[in-house]
Simulated assay, not measured.
Amino acid sequence: MLADPRLRKLSFTGSTPVGRLLLQQSGARVLRTSMELGGNAPFLVFDDADLDLAVREAMIAKMRLGGQSCVGANRFLVQEGIADAFAAAMGEQMAAIRVGPPDREDTGLGPLADHRAVDKVRHLVEDAVARGAVVAGTADIPDGPGHYAAPTVLDHVPADAAIMHEEVFGPVAAIHRFSTEAEAIAVANNTEHGLASYVMTSHIDCARRVAARLQAGMVGINRGLVSEVAAPFGGVKQSGLGREGGPEGLHEYQQLKYLSMPGFNT
Rank of each mutant, 00 (worst) to 15 (best):
V168E: 00
I163L: 00
R29Y: 03
E126V: 06
F233Q: 02
T16W: 00
F12E: 09
R243I: 03
Q68M: 14
S179N: 01
A89Y: 01
A28W: 00
S179P: 01
F43R: 13
V168Y: 00
R208A: 14
G72D: 03
I82A: 12
L112T: 13
F76G: 12
T266A: 08
D52C: 05
M164V: 14
F46H: 07
P247T: 09
E167Q: 13
E36T: 10
M59L: 14
A211W: 11
P158N: 06
M200A: 09
E166Q: 11
L250E: 06
Q238P: 02
Q238C: 04
I141F: 09
D103T: 09
V153G: 12
H165D: 14
G170K: 07
I175R: 01
A212Q: 13
Q215R: 15
K257I: 10
F76K: 13
A89C: 05
A49F: 04
D205W: 08
L112W: 13
A88G: 11
V199S: 10
N222W: 06
V135C: 10
L154Q: 14
F76I: 10
A85Y: 00
S239V: 02
H147Y: 15
K120Q: 08
L2S: 08
A41E: 03
G242W: 00
P102E: 09
R209L: 07
A113L: 15
A133G: 10
P142W: 12
E126G: 01
L7H: 01
P262T: 15
T266E: 13
Q24P: 01
H193S: 08
G144A: 01
V219S: 07
I175G: 03
A89H: 06
G72F: 01
F12D: 05
G246H: 08
H176L: 13
Y258R: 05
P5N: 04
A188F: 08
T201K: 08
V78H: 02
D143L: 07
G224K: 13
G146R: 10
A162K: 04
D205P: 02
G91H: 02
I175V: 15
H165Q: 14
G263Q: 08
E252Q: 14
E244I: 07
M200S: 11
K9I: 02
C206T: 15
G263S: 08
L241M: 12
R243A: 04
V229C: 03
V118A: 01
D127G: 04
E105A: 13
D119L: 07
A95I: 14
Q93K: 15
A3Q: 15
Q238M: 07
P142I: 11
G220Y: 07
L37K: 04
V172S: 06
A3H: 12
